[in-house]
Design a protein around this nucleic acid. Structure first.
Lengths: 211, 211
DNA sequence: CTAACGTTTGTCCAATCGGTCAAAAATTTG
DNA sequence: CAAATTTTTGACCGATTGGACAAACGTTAG
């Protein structure tokens, strides 16, 4: 809301260089956190000098903020697509699948977000209690509607959403641990398919044996 | 394994002060990460001067390492207790409950661990691929046995353990987000009981409507 | 060509970082 | 008590941090 996004009018070089910096910053911020990352690191990863980087982003925080806002938008897209049309169980299943794919394809974005939340979300707190809460409340209402029609079991929709976030993002945020525990065989590229199969079964049927 | 724990023989004051420092360091490390935390911050939180703190722990890393080793031991206790005796579903249910209680009662420990893993676990990687993997493999075998007897549904035991970790620790690591989304009413002290109820239902029955 | 504008860099700065050290203060020991 | 030992502190250090700045360089339009 106070992004200062009032048509900054940028040249072609500015567009490209800013993109280069954001890409480098994503790499560095996501693995070291905001305070742990240094401007020098980002500049080197972007292949330019520190003063040159500071020509495109005047403060370290500006880079982080730009990254954060852009991230949140794409990160919540799958939830926004959760729709009232279509079969509820199918809808939920494909939401879980899409979230897991995002954890697989954009782990840095997930870790950047996790880092921010872990440290108390000092820079995005208003967004959480604002836009995010609004969106989740809205989708929780949709899910509640499904429960009323008997299409899915009755539970707490909010905690259901949390559990989907937690289980899917776990494969991005805790990737090191997952791979270490699974070992070279099970921890290879197939681990996301194994996770997808498991999560589908968990969320649909739980652990009680059939019959 | 190379903790340097060869009977350091400490005085009463050393015991107390070291404990005081570790408590303060847990607070600071868990909210700022290793690099984000400063010795001055920890010293101030512990109510002593920086050189005095460095008299008890010679390097910043020593504090973190001591904290980390102690944490891992207590943190994995619930999993170690997972036992072959008793009803499998009951056993799993109480494991989930215990993990959730730990997220509620020791959120700082959870966040400290999450911070370390998020940043690639540079300081505890050997432990993950060693002791932790061994423990998880062992418990996965126990769970597999339960599946063979038909007491619980067949799934991937490793990913089952991951999902329990993810869903329970989420309430510690992402606490800020959880409370922001739930709002003042649902996000109060009762949120852990709501979570417990939801998780029990999820892991036992899934989302398919009964019958 | 040249003036204007956009881009890049080397140098510098104050603040903060983790850590040292010698000396003072407090405590324990005989 | 006094000596020995442990604990605490103020002053200090080199390295790194985020950032400022003017000068140099490159590009483009007239």
């Amino acid at each position: 809301m106070n992004t200062g996004t009032e048509a900054p009018r940028r040249t072609r070089i500015q567009q490209e260089k800013r993109e280069l910096i954001l890409e480098a910053a994503l790499e560095v911020f996501s693995t070291h956190g905001f305070r742990g990352a240094t401007i020098d690191q980002i500049a080197e990863a972007a292949g330019m000098s520190k003063p040159n980087l500071l020509y495109y982003f005047r403060r370290k925080e500006d880079i982080h903020e730009t990254l954060m806002l852009r991230l949140l938008d794409t990160w919540l897209a799958p939830l926004r697509e959760l729709d009232d049309i279509g079969d509820p169980l199918t809808e939920l299943r494909s939401y879980i699948r899409r979230k897991l794919e995002m954890a697989r394809d954009f782990p840095r974005e997930s870790r950047l977000f996790a880092n921010e939340i872990l440290q108390g979300a000092p820079r995005i707190m208003p967004l959480l209690a604002g836009d995010l809460k609004t969106l989740v409340d809205e989708k929780a209402a949709v899910i509640k509607g499904w429960m009323r029609t008997g299409k899915i079991a009755r539970t707490d929709p909010w905690h259901l959403i949390f559990s989907i976030w937690a289980t899917t993002q776990h494969y991005a945020d805790f990737d090191v641990q997952v791979r270490a525990v699974l070992g070279p065989n099970r921890g290879g590229d197939g681990r996301f398919e194994d996770a997808a199969r498991f999560l589908e079964q968990l969320f649909l049927d739980g652990l009680k044996p059939k019959r």
